[in-house]
Design a protein around this nucleic acid. Structure first.
Ligand SMILES: [Zn+2]
Ligand SMILES: [Zn+2]
Ligand SMILES: [Zn+2]
Ligand SMILES: [Zn+2]
Lengths: 162, 162
DNA sequence: GGGAAGGTTGTTATAACATAACAGCGCCAT
DNA sequence: ATGGCGCTGTTATGTTATAACAACCTTCCC
């Protein structure tokens, strides 16, 4: 340990969001192409909807958008598309909010960690760090398969305001 | 950093569970006494119910038990008691399961981390380690207030079986 | 072509989780 | 005694998620 560099969480800092969306879509399209995944119109549209904002959207929020566009109006439509995106790492579920965000690092194998602003709802995605938990798990003979790490607090903007 | 010792997660290892329950109840009772908290019959009973098992119970599981004992039959009864326990650190919410567990370290100020077995459902509670996340948060100017850390996998028993 | 298999969508219905809002009651301090 | 406060009781409703099955399409094989 020691000199590993932490990096800024993606999504919270000022950035070119149009490029952010275009890049993500591009990576997901390529990944689906090379891995034989079927990025259907509904799935693609749900990804676009998630990409519009760095906040967590509920399945029913997404569904409302889909319905307005004639792409489906029943819960399973939204849940299935979201399930596809989450299963393949193109989106993540935010447990603390019963919601979903587009992945900020699609195509890179990673375990995500989130910084969630309780005021404005914006979410930054970092990479995970669980060294001590892993040690604790080892001691218990526990085999970790998946880790949920969500930090709630105030983003740089909302800290100033409060 | 460096020589900090990781500890085994509480709850997964073999232990004297009767003592585990009695100790927890005792600590909570003392804490309530010294802090002027009102550990009412419903609240105490809900804590006991949670303490019976190191797995996550849903609010409706708890409610069923309460109802069978004539202590209340409507959702708010369970949610309010669970809310009290969580607010004062006597129980924790497990986001990934929409459930609740009794705290394994009541009375000690701590941020919990959980090891959740996907097969048997047992949950171990460790203390948290988020050094790198905190660094990442700092870089983003993010002020962390609360952290959810839940690792899912196989406990030592279930690893052997599979 | 016929037809089975697999994958996606469409739809109904219901399950599971959570809270708003208000009424009533006991306690206790003014 | 009465007004405030904290807790419980209750109704009603809101929100999130899934089971189950029907319909349709493409692919692939006979
Ligand atoms: Zn962006
Ligand atoms: Zn914010
Ligand atoms: Zn125990
Ligand atoms: Zn297990």
């Amino acid at each position: 340990m020691s000199e590993r560099k932490a990096e800024q969480a993606a999504g919270l800092a000022r950035h070119d969001h149009s490029a952010c969306i275009a890049d993500a879509l591009d990576v997901v399209e390529r990944t689906c192409a090379t891995e034989g995944l079927n990025l259907t119109p509904v799935r693609r549209r749900v990804l676009e909807i998630l990409l519009e904002t760095h906040t967590a959207l509920g399945a029913y929020d997404v569904l409302e958008r889909l319905a307005a566009e004639g792409l489906g109006s029943k819960p399973p439509i939204a849940y299935r598309a979201l399930g596809f995106l989450v299963d393949h790492g193109f989106a993540h579920r935010i447990e603390g909010r019963n919601g979903f965000v587009a992945c900020a690092h699609p195509g890179e194998r990673h375990e995500p960690a989130f910084l969630i602003c309780r005021t404005c709802g914006r979410i930054g995605e970092a990479r995970i760090e669980t060294a001590e938990l892993d040690r604790s798990a080892d001691l218990s003979g526990f085999e970790v398969e998946r880790t949920v790490l969500e930090a709630e607090g105030l983003c740089h903007r909302c800290v100033k305001v409060s």
